[in-house]
Each structure stands twice: as C-alpha cells, then as structure tokens.
Computed example of a mutant assay.
Amino acid sequence: MSRGVGLLLVVWLLACSGVHAQALPTQVSGSVSEAKTRLPIPGATVQVVRTKRGVVTSTTGDFSIEAMPTDTILFRALGYKSQRMPMGGIGLSQLVVRIQLVRDSVRLGEVQVISDRPDRAIINRALRNIKRPAPPVVSGAKRPPKPKPLFAVDSTAPKKPVPTIASPVSLLYDQFSREGKQRRKMEEIEAEQRAEKLRKARAEYNKAFLDNRGYTP
C-alpha cells in the first residue's frame, strides 16, 4: 500500500468517525423551577421541537429527555413564559441543565357570570298562565247520597206541660197528685230505657273500629 493511499484511508476513517459521533443522541436531564422563588414547577412540558416528542416534569420539577445535538428543546408551563434551549451541536452523551422560567403577567379580561335560571317573577307569571284541565265529565254519574247519622235524634220524647199563671190549679195538681207523680216516674223509666238502648247500639257499632271512644250523633 502506498503512502498516499494510506493517508486517504485515515482521512476517510476520521470523517466517518466524526459523522458517527455527531449522529449520537444526547441524554438531557435536569430540573425546571421558578426564576424568582427557585421552587420546582411540576407538570411543565419539555419537548423536542423537531420531533414533537416530550415529557412532563415530576412533582419535584425533574425531567429526562433524549435529543440530537442539532435539536432545540422547548420548556413550557402554565402561567410562565416559554423558554427554548438550542443544543448547539454539542457532542456530549449526557447533559444536565437547570431551567428557570419567568412568570407571565397575562391580564385576563373581565368575566361576567350570567345565570341561565329565569327570574322568580317570570316563573310566577308562567305558573299563573298555566291552563288547568277541567275535571272529566262522566255521563250518567250519580252523586253519592249525603251521609246520615247512625242514630236518629230522638225528638219524640214527651214534654212536660208548661204551667202558666192562668192555670195554677193544674200546676198544683201536677206536683202533688198521684197521677202526676206516676207520669213523672214513667218519663224517667222511658228515658233510662232509651239511654240503655242507645248505649248498646253504640257499643255494637264501635266493635269494628280501633278507636272505640263512641259515636256522638
């Protein structure tokens, strides 16, 4: 092998090794925190712009992602300004970075909350305007008879004669005569019989009910 051919072979091997070294990815790891407080930012996205592949930071703000030396990594978090980090053709196999994001002071517009529930006056007006259907008319229907008391009111009891000044003799006769005394005794007996009959009828009627306090006509 001549000297010139050997030199070209060495140059070609060096060129191939340089291309192979540039094609190796870099493992980028580190943390994302707030620039002012240095507190970690969990849930921040770390994305390779070229491939759109990304990861999310842990609860402590840590991450690890693989990128090529020619790639650019984009760091984003809600409420913070996004930050880009170009790899710059670095040929390292591992790279540790500390990314600090600045809060984004975005002022939101005024928000007006409107309830979709109608006003109480509208509800009351709608209720008043509802047409209630008329009760159905049944042809040939008869009204039920009015309830009657179970025991008729006794109105046939004999009444004592009302003595007047015009007949003082009848008053004296009714008070002291034997006939008057017998008539008053019979009235008392008849009243007791009627009361006993009514009591028995009430007791018989109330047997079918739990509340047996009696019936009062």
Rank of each mutant, 00 (worst) to 15 (best):
K148I: 08
A134V: 02
I122E: 14
R120Y: 03
R132M: 02
K160Y: 02
S155L: 09
R120E: 11
A134L: 05
V137Y: 04
R128Q: 12
D174W: 08
A152G: 09
I130N: 10
R143S: 12
A126E: 13
F151D: 10
A134M: 05
I123R: 14
V153C: 13
A141Y: 03
K131V: 11
P136Y: 01
I123Y: 02
P133M: 00
S167H: 10
K148R: 15
D154V: 10
P163V: 12
I123A: 06
P144M: 07
G140F: 01
I123N: 10
P133Q: 02
S139V: 07
F151W: 13
A121Y: 00
P163R: 14
P133V: 00
A152N: 12
R132L: 03
V137P: 08
P161K: 12
V153H: 14
R120T: 03
P136L: 00
P158C: 13
L150I: 07
Y173H: 14
I123K: 07
A126H: 10
V162E: 14
K159T: 08
L171A: 15
P147Y: 01
P145G: 07
P136D: 00
P149S: 11
P133Y: 02
R132V: 06
I165W: 03
P145M: 08
A134W: 08
K148P: 12
V137I: 09
P135T: 02
P144V: 03
P149Y: 07
K160P: 02
A152P: 13
R128C: 01
Y173V: 07
A126S: 15
G140V: 12
Q175R: 13
V153I: 07
P136G: 01
K142E: 12
T164G: 01
P135K: 06
L171I: 06
L172F: 02
P145I: 05
R128D: 07
S139F: 01
R143Q: 10
I123M: 11
R125L: 03
P149H: 09
Q175N: 03
N124G: 04
K148D: 14
I123T: 04
A152W: 11
I122T: 14
K131Q: 11
A121P: 02
V137M: 04
V169G: 12
I123E: 10
S155G: 07
P158K: 15
V169K: 14
I165Q: 12
V169W: 05
A126P: 09
K146C: 02
A134N: 12
P163I: 12
P161H: 05
P136W: 00
L150M: 09
G140I: 09
T156L: 09
P144W: 06
K148Y: 11
R128V: 01
I122A: 10
P161W: 06
A134S: 05
L127V: 02
P149L: 09
K142G: 06
K159H: 01
F151E: 14
V138K: 13
P135Q: 02
I123G: 05
P136Q: 01
L127A: 04
Y173F: 13
P149I: 08
R125N: 06
P161N: 09
V137L: 08
N124Y: 02
P158G: 10
